[in-house]
Amino acid sequence: MTVATDGGAPELSISRLIPAAPAAIWQAWAAPEMLRRWIAPSPVEVTCCAIELRPGGAFDLTMRLPDGTEMPSRGCILEAAENARIVSTDAMTAGFRPAPKPFMTSIVTLEPEGAGTRYTMRVLHVDEAGRAQHLAMGFETGWGQVLDQLAALATGLEG
């Protein structure tokens, strides 16, 4: 995990080599029934999942924590380059509609590396308080587990 601020938005990032082709990882992102299987760290349950990998498309999730708390997350896909890059934000909802309380923009890149894919996610926050909040929520541990889950799913898609 990297924590950076370069004069721009406060940023967090995580990168992992996943032993699957970019197309398999894209497939795990593109289908809501697959996305819900890996996008939240266990034992968090995804109760609602919608994704439209196109500019202006919806990226909506609702996660249920073990204590029953529901955490909705509504956003918009800004960029979707098949097998290569996904940019989304919660500063807007589907159709580029402004959202009331932006928290982050994520930039996911998929780069072929050897027999696998270098998966890198950069998360840009509105301010330092948002970055600190994301760290306190368990960014490194949570996203590490999520990437383990993604790797298991994407590897299975190739077999």
Rank of each mutant, 00 (worst) to 15 (best):
M1E: 13
D6W: 06
G7K: 09
A9I: 00
L12P: 01
L12T: 04
I14M: 08
I14A: 02
S15I: 03
S15P: 00
P19E: 07
A24V: 04
Q27M: 08
W29Y: 14
A30W: 00
M34A: 11
W38E: 04
I39N: 02
P41E: 13
P41S: 14
S42T: 11
P43Q: 09
V46N: 03
A50I: 08
A50E: 14
R54L: 08
P55T: 09
D60A: 03
D60I: 00
R64C: 07
L65R: 11
L65Y: 11
P66H: 12
E70V: 05
M71N: 13
M71E: 12
G75H: 03
G75C: 11
I77C: 12
E79A: 15
A81T: 09
A81M: 06
N83T: 13
I86G: 00
S88Y: 11
S88V: 06
A91E: 05
T93L: 01
F96M: 07
R97K: 14
I107G: 05
V108D: 10
T109H: 10
G114T: 12
A115R: 15
A115C: 10
T117L: 09
T117F: 14
Y119E: 05
T120C: 15
D127F: 04
A129T: 11
R131S: 00
A132L: 13
A132S: 13
A132P: 03
L135C: 10
T141R: 14
W143I: 01
G144N: 11
L147W: 05
Q149L: 08
A152W: 07
L153I: 13
A154T: 02
L157R: 08
